[in-house]
């Protein structure tokens, strides 16, 4: 099982992701700088969170046109698994690997807190297949542009094809269930073939029992195991 984590100037969750993945696989993932052009046959490519290129122009817009993304697109065209978290989700949307976009939070504020997520019934996907539909995970968000937007046809097709993977729901976390105004309370979506997932919440920030919440580790561990299966 080989995992690669892509790093852009301004990525800031790459190291947390590396630690979480190493905790699961026992191996340090390949850390790939955005100027590189190869991915060394990775099974799972992770695009981590942060503020790539300072969020200039639009979140993820410049990173999506970085040299490494050619290799990521190749990996995707071979049916490779890709996970984008937060800014990584924004980058995958900007590349067109996932539909829609993320706009400014409804309340105009940067939101940094835990959220309750519900696993949805989806198409076959390594990111959801080991998790029970309807089960909940508490995973934190930290973003200013996490408000998922797409036209009605796209939203309907996401729903009808089972591409909505995670939604914000009521639960023990403080604050309104949908933190940012996302359409259909969307927190994470899948590509039509289920091999690519983008999510705003940060599983790598809830991946250490010492901080009192390891739901993110449950999510990542499942993804790693299912991609390897």
């Amino acid at each position: 099982m080989r995992v690669a984590v892509v790093i852009f100037p301004g990525s800031n969750c790459d190291r947390d992701m590396m630690v979480a993945i190493e905790r699961i696989t026992g191996r340090r993932p390949q850390m790939v700088w955005h100027k590189e052009t190869g991915l060394d046959a990775a099974d799972l490519v992770i695009v981590p969170g942060g503020f790539s290129f300072g969020d200039y122009l639009r979140c993820g817009a410049l990173a999506a046109r970085s040299p490494i993304m050619e290799a990521v697109l190749d990996h995707a065209s071979r049916g490779g698994a890709i996970l984008g978290v937060c800014n990584g989700f924004q980058i995958l949307l900007e590349t067109g690997l996932l539909p829609g976009t993320l706009v400014k939070n409804k309340g105009l504020k940067f939101i940094c807190r835990s959220t309750n997520l519900q696993v949805q019934e989806t198409i076959s996907s390594p990111f959801t297949s080991g998790l029970e539909a309807g089960s909940q995970l508490a995973i934190p968000v930290a973003h200013n542009e996490g408000n998922y937007f797409a036209d009605e046809d796209t939203l309907a097709s996401l729903r009808d094809n089972g591409q909505i993977a995670l939604t914000y729901v009521n639960g023990p976390a403080f604050g309104p269930s949908n933190p940012n105004g996302s359409a259909h309370d969307i927190a994470g979506i899948l590509s039509p073939n289920g091999r690519i997932m983008g999510m705003m919440p940060h599983p790598e920030r809830a991946a250490d029992p010492d901080i009192g919440n390891s739901d993110g580790l449950i999510f990542l561990k499942n993804a790693v195991e299912m991609v390897a299966a």
Binding site: L57, R58, L62, R65, E94, T101, F149, A150
Partner: peptide, 9 residues
């Protein structure tokens, strides 16, 4: 089309 605008929105 390719970068300056996000034609979704």
């Amino acid at each position: 089309e390719q970068i300056l605008a996000n034609t979704v929105i």
